[in-house]
Design a protein around this nucleic acid. Sequence first.
DNA 1: TACATATTTCGATAAATATAGAAATAAGAG
DNA 2: CTCTTATTTCTATATTTATCGAAATATGTA
Lengths: 95, 95
Amino acid sequence: MDIEISKEKKLAELFSALSEPNRIRIIKILKTSDTELTCSQVSKVLQIAPSTVSYHFKALRKAGLTNTRRQAQTKYLSLNAKTFQKYLPHFLDSL
Amino acid sequence: MDIEISKEKKLAELFSALSEPNRIRIIKILKTSDTELTCSQVSKVLQIAPSTVSYHFKALRKAGLTNTRRQAQTKYLSLNAKTFQKYLPHFLDSL
DNA sequence: TACATATTTCGATAAATATAGAAATAAGAG
DNA sequence: CTCTTATTTCTATATTTATCGAAATATGTA
C-alpha cells in the first residue's frame, strides 16, 4: 500500500523529475529503444559526467518513473510503465 | 511560426512550470470549474500571497499553458487547451 | 591480493526557484 | 483628484537544483 499523498503533490513530484531536458532524453531513449540503459552509456550519449547521470537516474528512480536491475557492477535502468500509466497516461506515446 | 526548440526542451519547460503543487491546483481548478480565475481568487483559495500567485500565473503563461484576458484592473486566467493538446494530450482528462 | 570497470557519494559552486512584503502601476468610482 | 481594488515589480532570502571532479564503494578478473 502506498503512503497517502495528494495527487497534485505526486504530479508535481513527477513533473519535477521530468523538468530537465536530459531526463526527458533518457526517458525517450528508454522508450524508443525499448531496452535498458546504463549510467556509462548515457554518459557517453548525452556527453555529461557519470556522476551527473547517476544523479538523474536517482531522481527518476525516486519519482517512481524507472526501475533498476543490477548485474555485477552494472546497473540497468528501465521504464516503470505503471507509473506512467497511472499518472501520465498516453505521455509515452506522445514522446 | 514558433521559434525552433527541441521537443525535449519544450517538454522540460512545460514540466518545470507544472512542478509545483499550487500550479497543478490552479490548472485543476481552471479545468474542473471550466471558468476563468483571478489572482485574488486564487490567493484566497490557496492561501498564498497575491504576489506569489502573480509569479505562478506568469510562469504558467510563459510556458504557454494559460491565456490571459484583462478587464479593468482584473486579469482573468484560462487554460490554453492547444498547448495541452499538442504536448500533453489527455493530461487534462486525467487530472 | 592487486587491478579494472561501473556506479555512487561527497564537497563545492553557480544558477534557478518559491516565497513574502513593500512599493509601483493600472483602472474604476465618488 | 483622491480613494479603493487588483495586479505586478522589486528586494531580499532561504531552498533546491544541476553540474563537475575526486574519493569511496561494489564487483569481477588476473
